[in-house]
Amino acid sequence: MVKKRQILVIGNNTNGCTPEHEKIAYDIGVEIAKSDSVLITGGLGGIMTAASRGAKDTDGLTVGIIPQDDASEANEYCDIVIPTGMGFTRDFLNALSADGVIIVGGGSGTLSEVCASYMSKKPMVAIRNLNGSVEQYIDGYLDHRENVKIVGVDNAQEAVTKIIELISA
């Protein structure tokens, strides 16, 4: 049996998540399911719920790695819930569980996951023009180490196609 690709989708939680963010995240979830990859999220609201719903609507497999210690805190579209009880530290588990990362907007929590992914040299793509915390780093690097470039894309289909290409490289 071959291991399935695991793609982490990160971005705005319920606070700050716009209808545009939700639509893009939903479409990313659909495309991840169509690619026969596993969707990983932080398992909560906003981008995480929208991406998970898109994957579920397309018969995909979803995993939510939540900061709480109670699995019932996860959104209803998570097939597998990993309650960590670790708070923000769970961002590192999210990054390390992924083969690649797709970024949709986001604030400081998203930036924390991006930093964890960057230090672990995980391939990353980010949707352009969403005014998220990583906007200034798109098509560049977080720092002088140049661990991994954050590749800019314009839509959900391009995001999933590009992350699969980067994971396979």
Rank of each mutant, 00 (worst) to 15 (best):
L93G: 02
L93V: 13
N94Q: 12
N94T: 03
A95Q: 11
A95N: 12
L96Y: 08
L96H: 05
L96R: 15
S97G: 03
S97C: 05
S97I: 01
S97E: 09
A98M: 01
A98I: 01
D99E: 15
D99W: 04
G100I: 06
G100R: 05
G100P: 06
G100A: 08
V101Y: 07
V101I: 10
V101Q: 05
V101C: 07
V101K: 00
I102A: 05
I103A: 07
V104W: 00
V104I: 14
V104T: 04
V104Y: 10
V104Q: 06
G105K: 01
G105Q: 06
G105M: 04
G105L: 00
G106H: 06
G106Q: 13
G106T: 07
G107D: 13
G107R: 13
S108G: 13
S108F: 10
G109S: 13
T110W: 02
T110V: 01
L111Q: 01
S112L: 06
S112K: 09
S112V: 12
S112T: 12
S112Y: 02
S112F: 00
E113D: 07
E113G: 06
V114E: 04
V114L: 11
V114R: 01
C115D: 03
C115F: 09
C115S: 12
A116E: 14
A116W: 05
A116V: 07
S117Y: 00
S117E: 08
S117N: 09
S117M: 13
S117A: 15
Y118I: 11
Y118D: 06
Y118H: 05
M119K: 04
M119Y: 07
M119R: 12
M119P: 00
M119V: 04
S120D: 10
S120C: 12
S120Y: 12
S120K: 11
K121L: 08
K121H: 14
K121T: 10
K122M: 07
K122Q: 08
K122Y: 02
K122D: 04
P123E: 07
P123S: 07
M124G: 13
M124E: 08
M124H: 14
M124P: 06
M124S: 09
V125Q: 02
V125C: 07
V125L: 11
V125T: 03
V125E: 07
A126C: 09
A126E: 01
A126D: 06
A126H: 03
A126M: 11
A126V: 09
A126P: 10
I127E: 08
